[in-house]
Amino acid sequence: MEVLQLVVYGIVTGSIVALGAIGVSLVFSILRFAHFAHGDVMTVGAYGALVGVTLIGVTPMVAIPVAILFAVVAVLVAEFCLYRPLRSSHPVILLISSFGYALILRSAIQLVAGPAPQVFKSGIQIPYRFGEIVIRPDHFWIVGGTILIIVALHLFLSRSKFGKAMRAMSDNMDLARISGIPAYRMILITWVIAAALAAVAGVFLGMDTRLHPVMGWRLLLPVFAAAILGGIGRPYGAIAGGFIIGISMELSTMVIDPGYKHAVAFALLVLMLIIRPTGLFRGTSL
């Protein structure tokens, strides 16, 4: 029974990791660099929701639009001030710039909200019991919300004009430009989607555990691992990768110290890089 309980936790963690990994994967495939500030964009989203929760007094789920607003602003500021001016230089410079921006976001949050951990709502939630499995109401919201987002994303990528253009750019940038896809508008749309997903992931992470300034940075490694596992530029792969990483991380606590969860994500990443660097869904090889 302990296994099932851990699988439940794994699905919750996996949902959060998957939402982060979709964004990383999209950015990676359209802008060709590993966005190191993505974890801290998640943190910005979580604290944005906290602003909504404390000022308006709504639940974190209802405050998600506020979270998205904060995260989108954070990412667009970086795009206009840093990433666009630096795009003509080597992509690796963008990576370093995003690493610096991660630090800027984190210390800005610490400056405003303080370094102490915070919670959306204090007090104990009454969990639901199914036999021996215990599920908190928040976990239903997290997994349900993630499924909803994945369906919406699927419809966007497969049905809408922008979604198709985005997939075309990820498959072959030059061909997409020649066929008249407005590249810059697509870059902006990619950023908005990635930031929005990161914001939701951050809110869910805050609901699952607590909010603190390094919460997103600590999750960055599993998020990257999921994106690579699924294949760069493959949003569906990133979702699969997220759940594989999440469930493996939680199951591993049966045999090793929970603190080494990240080592499990890292081990899966290393294994993938050795066996099949293009990922499960054969994404863009960099």
Partner: peptide, 13 residues
Amino acid sequence: DYLAIATIGIAEI
């Protein structure tokens, strides 16, 4: 990029 990701992993561990 992969080296960068691998190095944050190893440093955390």
